[in-house]
């Protein structure tokens, strides 16, 4: 994946750039930096959710996103929350739910799951389309230490198996080390990578 942001502005005020990044297949990259510096903006640009910037993003193969919140369809079951957005078969979705420890919870609705389970469901959904690149926005931030630890291990296992590269935003250098990710820090005005 190649990201080349010349500049990104909000209401005429430059917030990002210039930023050039090349991500090799399987490479893991953690983006650190203080709140409000533009980490989420950077990730939204990389995900193709924000196209209002000067520059280019080129991805090889499918890209998946894990958002800050689980962002599930409250009116669909756990299984449907994997199959409907991604278009994968039910059997693949079942296997993925098993991988993230949600076997037997296929027919439950998101509100019947704990926050940790909802996040694992979001993780299963992200891995469903066999992404080449996984983008994660502070995915472990609102979890208690134990749950966050389990989520980190699970993410590591699934990443290893899929061979996908990872870009994830965090404010915790410990998470970056645990996922064996190269760390870059976003800082300055407008923010650039260091």
């Amino acid at each position: 994946m190649e990201i080349d942001i010349r500049s990104k502005e909000f209401a005429g005020k430059p917030v990002l750039g210039p930023i050039r990044l090349t991500l090799a297949p399987g490479e893991r990259l953690a983006i650190l930096g203080p709140s409000g510096i533009g980490k989420t903006t950077f990730l939204r640009i990389a995900a193709g959710l924000d196209r209002d910037f000067a520059g280019t993003v080129a991805a090889q193969g499918p890209t998946s996103v894990v958002f800050q919140e689980p962002t599930l369809l409250a009116w669909r079951t756990a299984l449907q929350n994997v199959t409907l957005p991604t278009g994968v078969t039910e059997s693949r979705a079942r296997a993925l739910l098993g991988d993230v420890g949600l076997a037997g919870k296929e027919t439950l609705f998101p509100r019947q799951l704990s926050l940790g389970q909802q996040r694992r469901l979001a993780l299963a959904r992200a891995f469903a389309p066999e992404p080449q690149t996984l983008l994660m926005d502070e995915p472990f931030a609102s979890l208690d230490a134990e749950t966050a630890g389990r989520m980190l291990d699970l993410t590591e296992t699934l990443l290893d198996r899929a061979g996908a590269s990872l870009v994830f935003v965090t404010h915790d250098p410990g998470e970056a080390a645990r996922l064996k990710a190269r760390s870059l820090t976003l800082g300055g005005t407008p923010a650039t990578m260091h």
Partner: peptide, 19 residues
């Protein structure tokens, strides 16, 4: 946020409308 999710996973317009 659900719009973003649907866009990120490239849901088809008909599926987006329905689900």
């Amino acid at each position: 946020d659900l719009d973003d999710m649907a866009q990120a996973f490239r849901m088809r317009p008909a599926d987006r409308l329905r689900h």
